[in-house]
Amino acid sequence: MGKAQPLPEPSEEEAVALFNAIEAKFPSKTVGNDKWYLITIAALCGGSKPDFAPTLYKHLVSKPEYASSDSRKALMRRLREALVKLVPLIGVCKCLEAIFDIEAITRPEDKDYSFSREGWQCDEANRNRGHAWQDRIYLHNQGKIDETLSSQRDFDWLSKNITYGLYLSDHTILNDVDTELVVLSGIMIQNLPRETHWHLRGTRRIGISNSDTETIQQCIETVADFCGVCLNKVPRVADIEHEV
């Protein structure tokens, strides 16, 4: 049997059409107008299309709201933080691909040299911060996860100290809603039913409405189509609503 032929790569024009479609569909009036591109970059990278991250960056900086160098630096911090938060979810290599490609087209005057996690320590304060954010997402469901991981303590430690402590509970650049949208997108695009279930539920628990969560899922599905990714295993928000 011959090898299956790869699908043709989407064009930059198709990518820009995707960005316009996501921005138009995203529930910006209720969730926020600075968030559609977070789910887009998360789903592109998780869907193995990090090479379109610079296309998204170019599309964004062409908008009037990013006319100043300071506004473009602030945008860079948000995109970079989204990619940092994706590291424990999709792996560092895809995130590095995106950041190298964005960096290659960033004007010298727009480069941002800030370092968000300087001085970070894996200490009790870090663990407590991670626990507080986990508690908002998981509530009473956390106990069952802890029980399962009691015999898999390496993963328990990673989850509490690193995934949540280091990455996801840091809301200095991306707030709670921003963070959960990145997480939901990065997980759902991988067609992971269990974790998508958890984070559809988590998205609802932090205050995003049922209808807005459904629309966000449809946006992620649109990116999945662009990436050639099948999302046939993940639940819908209606399937988890009774658990919220």
Score class of each variant (00 low, 15 high):
Met1Ala: 15
Gly2Tyr: 08
Lys3Arg: 15
Gln5Leu: 15
Leu7Val: 15
Pro8Cys: 15
Glu12Ile: 15
Glu14Asp: 11
Ala15Thr: 09
Ala17Gln: 09
Asn20Arg: 01
Ala24Glu: 08
Lys25Asn: 06
Ser28Arg: 01
Thr30Asp: 05
Gly32Tyr: 01
Thr40Glu: 06
Ala42His: 07
Cys45Thr: 14
Cys45Asp: 12
Ser48Thr: 13
Ser48His: 13
Lys49Arg: 14
Lys49Ile: 11
Lys49Met: 14
Pro50Asp: 11
Pro54Gly: 15
Pro54Thr: 13
Lys58Trp: 09
His59Phe: 15
Lys63Phe: 11
Tyr66Asp: 14
Ala67Gly: 15
Asp70Gln: 12
Ser71Leu: 09
Arg72Gln: 12
Arg80Asp: 09
Ala82Tyr: 00
Val84Glu: 02
Lys85Asn: 07
Leu89Met: 06
Ile90Arg: 00
Gly91Phe: 00
Val92Ala: 09
Lys94Gln: 11
Leu96Cys: 05
Leu96Trp: 01
Phe100Lys: 12
Phe100Thr: 12
Phe100Tyr: 10
Ala104Pro: 05
Ile105Phe: 06
Pro108Thr: 15
Arg117Thr: 13
Gly119Thr: 07
Trp120Ala: 12
Glu124Asp: 12
Glu124Asn: 07
Glu124Phe: 06
Ala132Asn: 07
Leu139Gly: 00
Gly143His: 06
Lys144Asp: 14
Ile145Trp: 02
Asp146Gln: 07
Glu147Gly: 10
Gln152Arg: 11
Arg153Met: 13
Gly165Glu: 05
Ser169Leu: 02
Ile173Trp: 00
Ile173Glu: 04
Ile173Ser: 01
Ile173Tyr: 03
Asn175His: 06
Asp176Ala: 14
Thr179Val: 11
Thr179His: 06
Val183Ile: 14
Leu184Pro: 04
Ser185Gln: 08
Ser185Trp: 04
Gly186Ala: 07
Met188Pro: 08
Gln190Asp: 07
Leu192Arg: 08
Leu192Ala: 14
Thr196Val: 03
Thr196Phe: 02
His197Pro: 04
Trp198Val: 12
Trp198Thr: 10
His199Thr: 08
Ile208Ser: 08
Ser211Tyr: 00
Thr215Asp: 02
Cys219Met: 04
Cys219Ile: 05
Glu221Leu: 05
Thr222Phe: 01
Phe226Asn: 02
Cys230Trp: 00
Cys230Tyr: 00
Leu231Tyr: 00
Asn232Asp: 13
Asn232Cys: 05
Arg236Ile: 04
Val237His: 00
Ala238Arg: 04
Asp239Ile: 06
Asp239Trp: 03
Glu241Pro: 02
His242Thr: 10
